[in-house]
């Protein structure tokens, strides 16, 4: 049960139950969809980018607890970061959920994202944890065309 507790930490369960930033931010000018065809998880990540800085972030969609909590925490942490910093965070997050991390190297930078370290023990769930991150990176790299508001 211990690895399970590592995976489903309180923070993750809380963000799953009450996801933060679960909306399209006003003035959003970039977005990208993340879709995992294996399990049907599907999230769209929205960013408002001004002068190379992510001023606001949000997401919409549906998925498992890991993917939803990850989207929630990701949108929290990228707010106020430059696009360059957001890309670097993606790399660090990706490293953390795929390979053993050096003890303290990124603990400060990743902050509460460290709760996803337990995903390492569940290789098939890595895609869940990184889904919204992939969407965020795609949004960062996308042209700044406006989000349609249907």
């Amino acid at each position: 049960m211990s690895e399970l507790t590592e995976l489903y930490q309180e923070v993750i369960l809380d963000h799953n139950k009450r996801p933060r930033n679960y909306q399209v931010p006003s003035g959003a000018n970039r977005h990208a969809e993340g879709f995992n065809p294996l399990c049907g998880d599907r999230f769209t990540v929205y960013l408002r980018v001004e002068d190379g800085v992510i001023q606001d972030a949000g997401f919409q969609g549906a998925g498992c607890a890991i993917s939803k909590a990850s989207a929630s925490l990701m949108t929290d942490i990228v707010k106020g970061r430059t696009l360059e910093e957001a890309r670097a965070l993606f790399d660090r997050f990706h490293d953390m959920v795929t390979a053993p991390m050096e003890a303290t190297a990124d603990a400060d930078l990743l902050g509460k994202l460290a709760v996803f370290a337990g995903v390492r023990e569940f290789p098939v769930r890595v895609k869940c944890a990184s889904l919204a991150w992939h969407a965020m990176r795609a949004a960062v790299q996308s042209a700044s065309d406006p989000v349609s508001t249907e």
Partner: peptide, 27 residues
């Protein structure tokens, strides 16, 4: 209710129970 099938699959797997979760190739 309130639990995504993927999470069900991971937790029951830890109990030794193998089930399928997902769209079952029938979207």
């Amino acid at each position: 209710d309130g639990v995504h099938p993927h999470d069900i699959g991971t937790i029951v797997d830890r109990e030794g129970v193998a089930i399928r979760t997902g769209h079952h190739c029938a979207q």
